[in-house]
């Protein structure tokens, strides 16, 4: 392969004048983490609400949950980000639209909310499945003790369902991290974006992408390890999940 490798490139100053190429990549990494965390919080909140809706006996509630999930699942994430970023400000009353367009950090907020809502549909599906997997008698027992539906969810169903869906939630969180890279298309210079920028400035394509790859792998290892730790600390003595 006639490619000129230059691993020292990371320690050479980057064209922005602020630090080295490595600094550039690290700032991208941090932005990826920040965006993913905010998106994940949004995904958990909305996903929990919609997941609960889907599990309720009320036909109307589960229909609303179904529509929500279908809406966010049947459009590419990229298209959804475009809708939030380019289309929404134009469709709002002009004042609100202008405010949105002038929002500082618009790509960041759009990415976090857009990816968050996209992922919330998947969290909802997982949670609804988790709730459905609990024995029917659990809900009956909670009800028979006089707990209201809300209390039953809060104290009995959700704590168990979330424990059960911990493994799929781990991969959904990793998907959230990966999906933030789609926001490169609306101008968010996160890790992939910085790698791309480095490639354009320095022409060291493979070094740039190798570094980004290593960083994504590192995120994966940290998250998987962390979640395994969390899973273990939440494990119930004597109880075998997923039997």
């Amino acid at each position: 392969m006639n490619y000129n490798w230059n691993w020292h490139i990371f320690f050479e100053p980057n064209p922005t004048g602020a630090g080295t190429y490595l600094d550039m990549l690290v700032s991208g990494l941090l932005l990826t983490i920040k965006t993913a965390l905010l998106a994940w919080i949004i995904a958990l909140i909305f996903g929990t609400i919609v997941g609960i809706l889907r599990s309720l006996p009320s036909k109307a509630a589960s229909w609303i949950g179904f529509c929500y999930v279908e809406f966010f699942r049947n459009m590419p994430l990229l298209v959804q980000l475009f809708l939030w970023f380019f289309v929404l400000p134009e469709l709002l009353p002009s004042g609100a639209g202008l405010w949105l367009k002038q929002l500082p950090n618009a790509p960041f907020w759009t990415a976090a909310i857009g990816v968050g809502l996209f992922m919330s549909a998947r969290v909802a599906v997982q949670l609804a499945a988790g709730i459905a997997s609990l024995p029917r008698g659990q809900k009956n027992a909670a009800t028979a003790l006089g707990l209201t539906t809300a209390q039953g969810y809060r104290y009995i169903l959700l704590p168990m369902a979330f424990r059960i869906i911990m493994p799929p939630l781990t991969s959904e969180f990793l998907n959230t991290v990966k999906n933030t890279s789609v926001a490169i298309t609306i101008g968010l210079i996160e890790l992939t974006g910085q790698a791309r920028a480095m490639q354009e400035f320095s022409f060291q394509v493979f070094e740039a992408f190798t570094a980004a790859t290593v960083m994504y792998l590192a995120i994966n290892i940290v998250v998987v390890t962390g979640m395994r730790f969390l899973e273990r600390s939440l494990a119930i003595p004597g109880y075998i999940t997923g039997k």
Binding site: L145, G146, Y155, I156, Y239
Partner: peptide
């Protein structure tokens, strides 16, 4: 809920809440 709280029920499959300690199972409601 108020009426049910006044009638105790015992189920075929026990239906203890697996994530709560025994004493917590008794205290929750």
């Amino acid at each position: 809920p108020k009426l049910r709280a006044r009638v105790g029920m015992v189920f075929q499959h026990f239906e203890l809440f697996p994530h709560l300690r025994i004493i917590e199972n008794l205290c929750l409601a």
